[in-house]
Every structure is written in structure tokens, then in C-alpha cells.
Design a protein around this nucleic acid. Sequence first.
RNA 1: GUGGGUAUAGCUCAGUUGGUUAGAGCACUAGAUUGUGGUUCUAGGGGUCGACGGUUCGAAUCCGUUUACCCACCCCA
Length: 428
Amino acid sequence: MNIQAPKGTKDILPPQTRLWQYVEKTMRDTAALYSFEEIRFPAFEHTELFLRGVGETTDVVQKEMYTFNDKGGRSITLRPEGTASVVRAFVEHNVYADTLPFKCYYIAPNFRYERPQHGRLRQHHQFGVECFGAALPAADAEVIALAHSVLRGIGVERLTLNINSVGCPACRPAYQKELLQYFTACKDKLCETCLTRLENNPLRILDCKTPSCGELKKNAPKSVEHLCTDCSEHLSSVTASLDEMGIGYTLNTLLVRGLDYYTRTVFEFVTTLEGGELTVCAGGRYDGLVAVLGGPSTPAVGFGMGIERLILLMEASQTIPDLTPENTVFVAVADSTAQHRAHALASELRQLQVSCDIDLCSRSLKAQMRYADKKKASYVIVLGQRELEENKIKIKFMSDGRTIESGLDAAEIATLINPPKHIEKSYI
RNA sequence: GUGGGUAUAGCUCAGUUGGUUAGAGCACUAGAUUGUGGUUCUAGGGGUCGACGGUUCGAAUCCGUUUACCCACCCCA
């Protein structure tokens, strides 16, 4: 029997989970600073939601979805991305009738049937942010600033923010037409995959990394030069905001996202740290999607941030803080007469919010000390017949070996370990 | 979906042109006199050499098949 996690999935065990909790906390705290609140939604949806929401021509829909029929004969798909689900919930619960903008975030797994490789899994986790009901460029800048704050909060700098505008239904068709003409003219020089792109979505030829196509791209018509006045002003307002906030960016006219729903602003945070390029965060504006999924026409903007990739980055750039739990106590037992009292002491300390560990394997005192050291306990208290008789204990500081005395009393011990914090704030 | 690489202890890996009971380091457990960790020393546990089949007196080693993982492409976070 083959007992291992399915292809492209990963277990996350301690102490790695500490890092995940740290990253997730940074995301939640940052979202709160920007007044974004959490939304939760199911891990699977009706397949149709993604067909319509993500776009039937996209690779994600065409070849990467985990789709199956449930026992009731419904076609179900494991969520390949978060935005469609949020939009569905937004429409289903008539959130558009509430005070807008509706600003929410989520931390949730996505599922895509792909060949796993570096920074790519079949189940990966995303921190996603969406903002509905705000058409102003300020909303784009707000969302980008949030992403930037998270990345800075985690300590991964050295990321490039690429930004571009893909236009709107008013100006994009004309641009696409021009692009099609340009690339059709030099058809014979395009690589194979780009030939198919020429028919499906000429915009994505701009994304090609083949050197020969790269030459052609240089002279290709640029989207920013074909934007309508509204789109053009929108983009310059977004970048003006970024300038003002001190967020560096590169106007990358070749930036195109693979999902069909984007309008106007598209952006991504990429890094070259891992040898190749790795996109850690990507998003943009999608003013048409709410209407496509049956809601009233509502402007929206958001992004997704890949947590696995973020952690990969942290490991590569060595920005991982020490996440060892602090102020933990190990209550050791010197002889069996003290065993039950020791357990009770640990229990009393825990009631006082002191994190405690005890021996559960009846090891020798020496072995218990070794264990406490391995587990990086901050303090050790040894309990034996002597301590019980004298009603006194010593607290040993594992960092330097010194000890201090205390009564055999949980409250006294807790005070010695966690001295009450002085309130320094003045409430004038 | 296409192409390439790798599978030996919990981890990182040795293993000579096929030859006896398959090794190291780290990790783990225990001991180095009487109740105290980190260093050191000693001992111990742990592997059907990814799986199946073949060649051979003999296979971790050679051949075939298969599975898993890794890497690149497509695409994506």
C-alpha cells in the first residue's frame, strides 16, 4: 500500500508550522490595518462558476481543474483560484446592497492539476484580497499598498513590482486587433506555442520567453499607447499614488495575466532570487466579473499571494526570524514521589498562562534535562522529595544555568517568570 | 500534456570492474557512582538497497518494466 501524500501536495509539520502561523498572522494583521475583513468560502464549487468566472479559454480551466461528479450527479470542481468564489459569495448574499466598498481577504488552499516543480504544487495556499465597489484608481493603489506592506512586514524585499494596464472593453478590442495584425505579419518567426496563442489570445504572445519572440515583442504595439483616455488617466493616477507612497514599480508594457477577467490595472511582484523568475503575488482590476456572474455591474480589484512561494523566498533570503516559543517551563521529576505533585504544578502554571511541559516517558532526571534543552525550554523546575518537604523550588534559567529560589507555589513562580508589565502609555 | 534527472537508515550521502553478516556522519535511546541540559567518550536500536521481473554460482551494483520524487517547458501564486 502506497502511504504518502498525493502528488503535488505537502504536509506541513512543526516546526515549519510556526513559520506558517507567523506569515499568516502578518497577513491578517496587515489586512486589518487596511480595514479588510476575512471571508471564508467552500473548497469546491459548481464547475460552471469557474467556466464562466475564470474563462473557458484559460489553461487553468482547460487542463488544470480537479473536476468530478458528486453522488447527486452535480459537476463539482475543487477551487483553482479564490476570486471566482468571492465574487459568487458577493453576488449570492447581495453584499452589493450593503455599504460599499466591500473589502475582504482570505487565506485558503487552491487546487490545480499541474506537473509539480519548484514553487508549484497541486495544492497551494493563497492569501487573497478583493475590494468591490470602488472604481477609483485609489482602490488599485490601496490593494497594491496592502500587498507591499505584507511583503515588507515579512521582510522579503528585493521584489520587483511590475504594473501595466490591459485596457477596458472600450479600448482593448482595437488594441487586440492591431496586435493581431502585427504578429500575423511576422507569423513565420513566431514559436509554436505563440502560433496557437495568435488564434486564442494574441495578448499572451507578449508573455512569451522565447528569444526569437522576444525580438518581435520589442516593436509590437504597446498597450499603454492604445488606451482610451479613461484607462490612460486611471493608470497614471495609480502610479502617481504609488510614487507618493514611496512604492517602487516598473511600468512593464509586456505584462499580461493569464486569467481572462482582468481590466485596466494588472500587476505582479516577482523575484529573481531563486535562479529563475518567481511570481509571488499577482492581481489586478476586474470590473466586468461581478456582472458576468449575475450581479450588478460592480468595479473590483484584488490580488493573490502564494504562501508556499513566499516561504521559499524567505528561506532563500534568510529572513526567517527565531520563532521558538518563549518563556516555557519544563517541570522535571527527580523521584517518583513527586510525580503527581509535579503534574499538578504544571497544570496550575498553565491556568496562569505559563506554557509548561512535563515528562511523559518516565525518563531519568538527566534525560529530562536533555529533553528540556532539546525542546528549548526557557526554565526548568525540578521537583523531588526534598522540594516537597521544604516547600521550596529552584527555577533554573536554561540560557545561562543560573537559578533563583521560589516557594512551591504556581502564582509565585508565574510572577518570577512573567513579571507584570508596566503600563507606559499615558492616556492624556 | 512534452523533455531530462534521481531513488541505499528518520536526514545527508558513501558503497571500488557484480563477491561473504550493507557502511559513515548527523539524529534518536541509554551509560560515564550518589538529584540537573549544551562539550566529550562509550554502547545500542533502526534498512526486504523504491517495487516487480530477468541475467548469474552469486545483484545495492548489469538489463527490462513500473511507481514515486526532483528539474525544465506550457501555464501559473
